[in-house]
Structure formats: structure tokens, C-alpha cells
Design a protein around this nucleic acid. Structure first.
Length: 562
RNA sequence: UGGGGAGUGGCCAAGUGGUAAGGCACCGGCCUUUGGAGCCGGGUAUCGAAGGUUCGAAUCCUUCCUCCCCAGCCA
């Protein structure tokens, strides 16, 4: 094994500003060369592709430096969180291919410790129970340009605060009756430092701690300490927490405990996509999609069902880089990474999505031949298979034009094309019904061209895929397109939903090898795209989801020609 | 108008004083039994702007402009 191959995926990646910081720490000995990270989701929804950038960075950083990465659920708000989401998140991260060993933690594991630390801060005189109503707290907080003012309850004695906090914990005070606040600085230009709320009263049962607590820590009070407890060295998070960092630093300094370094980076955004969990949940709740795993959703479960691979998603994350400027990556890059991956691995198969009948008039009635087809031109070990050929065939409706425009070089009257791995055929006739709709196309074939080559060296401009009509099986095919029709769906994202994001084709023909397609196997339907078996499939009718189309230069030409 | 961030070709993104990587997209061409894949070639990027320092600036200094985040008992 040479050195190149010995590099792990993360070591081979070009560096980024986060790793530069870690390098500096390692050089200065700040954390004794240790690297401990964590991925801290809130279980209030399912993971989406945006999260995969964070996951990739968190786990990738640990891997690159021989450290560890914990999975920790920041489950501090029982009104929004559910076990179902915890289970889904675990499944999704595993699917992406990351491993946290036995290091799965929950902020709720630390509720007792957090409570004790709150008592400590009260005793240190830097936390107090506030009886201002929520709207009063907001009013007292001031604005972006004006300082706030102190709560009249700010100077209660330590004893009184201790007693009141005890009552909060014991359930003697109703929801919203009061809160515990840090006593920092109501005039701070950083609003996060204007006496932030540490605990609120929520008589709500928690997915993990049940009814043990009726006070729950705010994220800002729980997150930094959770990192500290776990010995996190590098607490990687997104940009919006940048001005919370002084608060986390303040808590940790007051407590005198291990101090991680928080590093903020810009989250992943994609064109034609939304990444807000709130909005994704709305799409699900209002039935705009079939569920969190609708193949049009940017959720990991949706992408998985669509036929995306973990490798393609990780490749995207590696390719976009890590920086601090807000950015929107074009979804074409994702389409590129999935095509690149699937081109290597997908078995080629034949499916005629929008069939039209072709009769080979000079082909003997009743004759059937086996044509040998390559399973994957990118992988010789995938071998070949036999597909039946006969006098009556189906081809793709769009592969025939009676009056072809410039640059259309597929089948049209008088023109010769190749049927892939079969014969050259020439169109001799077009049969229409009373409405002028094309019913079938008559062709002749050249018996000398079996397999797809002419002994006389004659060339054709096009190669079409086909299926023997009496031998073809049927399937349902779901053609997915972008969920949104505008590159950056805005506030009124529901109006930006693409009405043509799903086209269901009920009567497609597939070759027999596809009739027993396996779940989890990726297929390329030759000349049309990559497809993946959907769980809605039944024994007598498989259902295929289109993952992504093949690159289509003809479509591009058509677009240009208007 | 308070505080915190960011501005490099269409989209990402390297570069950290020595004369602008790479990927995607786009446009040509070659090749081709997938109009797929592959291969070759193509961008004068006023490095947000203006001043300044320097032999030399995307990189240093000054001023300005634009965009993003923060006023939940959400995370």
C-alpha cells in the first residue's frame, strides 16, 4: 500500500479554516493534541442534506485527527421533540456512514448537573429568579439600539432566589410563572448577554426523562455545558451562534469548567431547495408532499428513497468546502455527484417509459431471438444478459418524429437507426388512427446487422432502446423534478412549489430482469436516467423512482431551439 | 442608527505581500452500439469600492459600500 492510498478520506481532503484552527491548537498544545467533536441535533424533525455538511465536518474532523465525535441530542424542549425523530436521526447518520461507537448522549442526561450548576450560579450571585411576564421581559430587554433595563426582581437575595428556584423545580409554580435568569448586563450591546433566561417552567413530559422535571434548561444554558461535560475540544456550529459564543464563554468561566473552542461555519444551502426544518415540517403537515421521506424532500430519508447514495452526498460535502460566507450551492453540483457515483455502479437496464409500437414488417412472425446486452460498460465484472427480440417492439415515443427538426437524428420516415444490441431498422410507414394519432410505426430491419453493426461499415446517427412487445413487463415509474420552481424559494415558499415536481407513469414497459428488481439496487434505464425501486412496489407491479436524469444534450438543444 | 460576521469569474472555493488553484455550470471539438460515459480545448475574474504603504497588494493600513445574523420563557 502506498502513502496515497493510506490516506483516509478526511486526510485527503484539502484543508479548510476549521482544520487550520485545529492545527494551530495542536501546534500550541491547547488541548494536548486531543480532538473531540460532536454532532448535536435537536430531535424536532428529520435530518436534511444541509445537516450532512455539519455531520461530515464534525465526524470528518475527528477522523482526520484521530479523535472522536459524539452524537448528542440537544433535547431541552419537550414540547417540540419526539422519540420518532431520535430514531430517524440515528438511522440517517448511520446510513450516511458515520459511527459514534457507544458515544450517544443526550442533553437530558445532564439535567441534574445543569440544575446543580444553576444553584451554584445563584449562590455566586449571578443568577436570579424573575417574575416578569414574558412580554415584560421582552420590553425590558431593550432594542438593538437601546439598552435594556434591570428587572425589579434582579436584586433578590441569594436565599430568596434559592427558595424560589427550589419551588420552580418542585412544581409549585405554574408554566410561565417565573424564570431563572443569568445576571450579566442589561446594557450589553450583545443582546444575548442581557440577562438571558436559563430555565423556564414547562409541565410537560419529556421523551426521555418523563415527568421527572418541570423546569427545562434553555438551549443557551445547556449547550455549552453539555460540550464541556463531554470534554469537547472543538465545538463546531453554524454562523448564527457566533454572538452566543460570549455567553457560552461567560457561563463556563463562571463555573470554572473545561472550556471548548466554538468555531462557526456557514451552513449548506442548495438552489431550488429549502433547508428549514420548520418549513419542511409544514410541507409534510399540510400534505404538500407525502411525508418526510417523499423523494422530493431534501431530507436524508427522502434522498435515500429517491435513490441518492451516501457517497454522493458525502462527495458533495467534500466538494463545497467550508467557509464563513453565506452561500447557495447550485443543485447541479449534487446532480453531478450522484451521476458520477451511479455511473460507476448502476446496472444498465431497458425500460420504455412512454411506449409506441414498432412493427418490423420483414421480420418473421413468431420468431424470437436473444440479444446480449452489457450490464455496465463501466464495470466489466458486471457481465452481460440476454433480452428477447421479436417482430413487434416498443420504443420511446419521443424517439420518433414524423417531421423532424434540425439536429433530431433519431427515427423518422425513411431514416435508418440502430436498435441497441439488436438491428438497424428503417422506418417505412406511419400508421395513424382516425384522430391522426400515430398508432404504430412500420419498419424493415437488416438481418446483416444483428448485434448492432453493419458488415459494410454503414453508420447510423442514433441508437434507440427497445423492448419486445409480447415479452415486456409493466411497471409504474415516478418522474421527479425539483420541488420548487424558483432557485431560491422565499418567504412564500408554498407559492414556489413546482406543480410538475412529480409525474406518475402508470404503464411503462420494463425488461424482465427489472421485474424482480431488488430493493437497494441502483439501475440506469439506458438513455433516460437512474432509477431506484420504491417501497410502494408490489409483487405484480414494481414502482421505480427516478433519481436523476442522464445528462441530456438533446434536451439542451431543444431548449435552445425553443 | 448597537453588536457580531461576510464580500475572489454564473455557483462554490483556494490563496495569508511576489504577480489569481480546483470543482460545478456554460461554450466548442474528438470519440462513441446510451445525444450516457470518456478525452481535448475555451474565461483577459477592474479579487465589493476608493485612497494609501511597498520595488511589488486579493493579501498590510484608512475610509466607504453591500449582504447576512441577533431584540423566543425556540434551537
Amino acid at each position: 500500500m502506498n502513502e496515497q492510498n493510506a490516506l483516509t478520506e478526511s486526510e485527503a481532503r484539502p484543508s479548510n479554516f476549521v482544520w487550520d484552527i485545529v492545527d494551530e491548537h495542536n501546534a500550541s498544545g491547547r488541548f494536548g493534541g486531543k480532538v473531540v467533536t460532536r454532532f448535536p441535533p435537536e430531535p424536532n424533525g428529520h435530518l436534511h442534506i444541509g445537516h450532512s455538511k455539519a455531520i461530515s465536518l464534525d465526524f470528518g474532523t475527528a477522523e482526520r485527527y484521530g479523535g472522536t465525535c459524539n452524537l448528542r441530542f440537544d433535547d431541552t424542549n419537550p414540547v417540540k421533540e419526539e422519540q420518532e425523530y431520535i430514531d430517524g436521526i440515528i438511522e440517517d447518520i448511520k446510513w450516511l456512514g458515520f459511527d459514534w461507537g457507544d458515544r450517544i448522549y443526550y442533553a437530558s442526561d445532564y439535567f441534574q448537573q445543569l440544575y446543580q450548576w444553576a444553584v451554584q450560579l445563584i449562590k455566586q450571585g449571578v443568577a436570579y429568579v424573575d417574575h416578569l411576564r414574558a412580554d415584560e421581559i421582552r420590553e425590558y430587554r431593550g432594542t438593538l439600539t437601546e439598552p435594556g433595563k434591570n428587572s425589579p426582581y434582579r436584586d433578590r437575595t441569594v436565599e430568596e432566589n434559592l427558595k424560589l428556584f427550589e419551588q420552580m423545580k418542585n412544581g409549585e409554580i405554574p408554566d410561565g410563572g417565573c424564570v431563572l435568569r443569568a445576571k450579566i448586563d442589561m446594557a450589553s450591546p450583545n443582546i444575548n448577554l442581557r440577562d438571558p433566561v436559563m430555565y423556564r417552567i414547562l409541565h410537560e413530559s419529556h421523551p426521555r426523562t418523563g415527568d421527572e422535571w418541570c423546569i427545562y434548561p434553555m438551549y443557551d444554558w445547556a449547550h455549552g455545558q453539555s460540550d464541556s461535560i463531554e470534554g469537547i475540544t472543538h465545538s463546531i456550529c453554524t454562523l448564527e451562534f457566533e454572538d452566543h459564543r460570549p455567553l457560552y464563554d461567560w457561563f463556563i468561566d463562571q463555573l470554572g469548567i473545561h472550556h471548548p473552542q466554538q468555531i462557526e461555519f456557514a451552513r449548506l444551502n442548495l438552489t431550488y431547495t429549502i433547508m428549514s426544518k420548520r418549513k419542511l415540517k409544514q410541507l409534510v403537515d399540510e400534505g404538500h408532499v407525502s411525508g418526510w421521506d417523499d423523494p422530493r424532500m431534501p431530507t436524508l430519508s427522502g434522498l435515500r428513497r429517491r435513490g441518492y447514495t451516501p457517497e454522493a452526498i458525502r462527495e458533495l460535502c467534500d466538494t463545497v468546502g467550508v467557509a464563513k460566507s453565506n452561500s447557495v450551492v447550485e443543485v447541479e453540483l449534487l446532480e453531478h455527484t450522484i451521476r458520477q457515483d451511479l455511473n460507476r455502479r448502476a446496472l444498465r437496464r431497458i425500460a420504455v417509459l412512454d411506449p409506441i409500437k414498432v412493427v418490423i414488417v420483414n421480420y418473421p412472425k413468431g420468431m424470437v431471438e436473444e440479444m446480449e446486452m452489457v450490464n455496465n460498460p463501466e464495470d466489466e465484472s458486471a457481465g452481460t444478459r440476454k433480452v428477447l427480440f421479436s417482430r413487434e417492439l416498443y420504443i420511446e415515443r419521443e424517439d420518433f418524429m414524423e417531421d423532424p427538426p434540425r439536429k433530431f437524428y433519431r427515427l423518422s420516415p425513411g431514416r435508418e437507426v440502430r436498435l441497441r444490441y439488436a438491428y438497424f431498422i428503417t422506418c417505412t410507414d406511419v400508421i395513424k388512427d382516425v384522430d391522426g394519432e400515430i398508432k404504430e410505426i412500420h419498419c424493415t430491419y437488416d438481418p446483416e446487422t444483428k448485434g448492432g453493426n453493419a458488415p459494410d461499415g454503414r453508420k447510423v446517427k442514433a441508437t434507440l432502446h427497445w423492448l419486445s412487445a409480447p415479452h415486456a413487463k409493466t411497471a409504474e415509474v415516478r418522474l421527479y423534478d425539483r420541488l420548487f420552481s424558483t432557485p431560491e424559494p422565499g418567504k412564500d415558499f408554498l407559492n414556489d412549489i413546482n406543480p410538475n415536481s412529480l409525474e406518475v407513469l402508470e404503464n411503462c414497459y420494463i425488461e424482465s430482469a427489472l421485474a424482480d428488481a431488488k430493493a437497494g439496487e441502483h439501475y440506469q434505464f439506458e438513455r433516460t436516467g437512474y432509477f431506484y425501486l420504491d417501497p410502494d412496489s408490489t409483487d405484480d407491479k414494481p414502482v421505480f423512482n427516478r433519481t436523476v436524469t442522464l445528462r441530456d444534450t438533446w434536451a439542451k438543444i431543444q431548449k435552445k431551439q425553443g
